[in-house]
Design a protein around this nucleic acid. Structure first.
Lengths: 199, 199
DNA sequence: GCCCAAAAGCTAAGATTATTAGCCTCAGCT
DNA sequence: AGCTGAGGCTAATAATCTTAGCTTTTGGGC
């Protein structure tokens, strides 16, 4: 019988197709094996089990997404760049809901994963710098920005917003609120009184 | 042999303990059966399989959480209520990371789940109304608020923020930014130009 | 107090899946 | 031509979910 000619990359490709088509629930080694035309144990020659496959898949998706969004903000600054960043992220989550769910839940203490994740954060950094932010304020602003957009798309996709009414308008509202919040405010300053600690 | 005296509630209690102790990965019917002292098939007399158990668990958690946060904002308004809402939500996610993960991923088109979810949204509504918002702007503000806080705690818990540095300060920044965004702005208004549609 | 129906257990069994172990074969290099 | 190792395969183990069908306890009605 001819060889299937697999490789880790090819395995991830197949896994990505299955994820897109059927979601994480049905992303199983058996399914990947069927799609690639081998028996499931053969996959272990390329990938160390299902958790590893999910990890590699998350890294692939993060990389692709960072690249897409990075391209979208090229040549833009300020509100323009922010809108592009937020909108492109939302488009990604809408077009590939299962990919978004996968990277949303992933929580690996793995250098490669952290690096891939950092690429996405770097894009957000660039956007925030376009608002004239730097230093500690930049850090906070980027975190706030990412929090808002990931939360929004998660709620949207998980049907957390009871009615589909005006979700686009809500997203526009969020973009405006975020832009207002990001603009450095020399008067009030971003500092607040001490926070109650969780725990 | 004496009966275990189970009930759907008791099964959910046990499931909640397991979730808290070991996370969703190990929330299995077998584990629940062991903990309640019955054989796994016996659980089907009280709960229709694992997906159903997860659904009920999510509903329980949403209800508890809505109640907690609802209590936390009693007697507060404006920024005070907003801080209490956001902080209490973050405390919940920090203290019960697995519960948070469970309700975060849940996406059931189920009336009971929607009702439980609505209780949490109602609390957010109350907070936003304390800012003098109503109508469509209220809707957008509440969505933005929920997006920001769920996104923040998700990123925090998933180690999405590279360093643990200053996360409290970032959260304070987010609260300020949100308060600024929520305050009705009669001049600029919250409306923006048409948004590119995702898809 | 007894009877009986239904609720709540149990065991057995089938289906999936992940994963390990050990074997076989093809491809390519010497 | 022969060897070696990567890439496949089959067999086997273990975990779990779930269904089917049996048994026992419980509690209400007579």
């Amino acid at each position: 019988m001819p060889r299937a000619g697999l490789s880790p990359e090819a395995v991830i490709d197949a896994a990505l197709e299955i994820l897109d088509e059927h979601g994480q629930e049905r992303l199983t080694l058996k399914a990947v094996a069927d799609r690639t035309g081998v028996a499931s144990p053969s996959l272990y020659k390329h990938v160390h089990g299902l958790p590893e496959l999910r990890r590699l898949l998350a890294i692939r998706i993060l990389g692709d997404t960072a690249e897409r969004i990075g391209l979208a903000i090229i040549g833009r600054t300020g509100q323009d760049a922010l809108d592009a960043y937020l909108t492109e992220y939302r488009i990604f989550a809408t077009r590939h809901p299962h990919r978004h769910a996968l990277i949303e839940r992933a929580t690996y203490d793995d250098p490669a994963f952290a690096a891939a994740s950092a690429r996405l954060t770097d894009v957000a950094d660039a956007v925030a710098r376009g608002f004239g932010l730097d230093g500690e304020e930049l850090l906070h602003a980027v975190r706030t920005m990412r929090a808002a957009v990931t939360g929004f798309v998660s709620l949207e996709r998980g049907r957390g917003y009871r009615t589909p009414t005006d979700i686009d308008a809500s997203f526009a509202y969020l973009r405006r609120a975020l832009a207002a919040g990001l603009r450095p405010d020399p008067v009030a300053g971003p500092r607040l009184a001490a926070t109650p600690q969780p725990g």
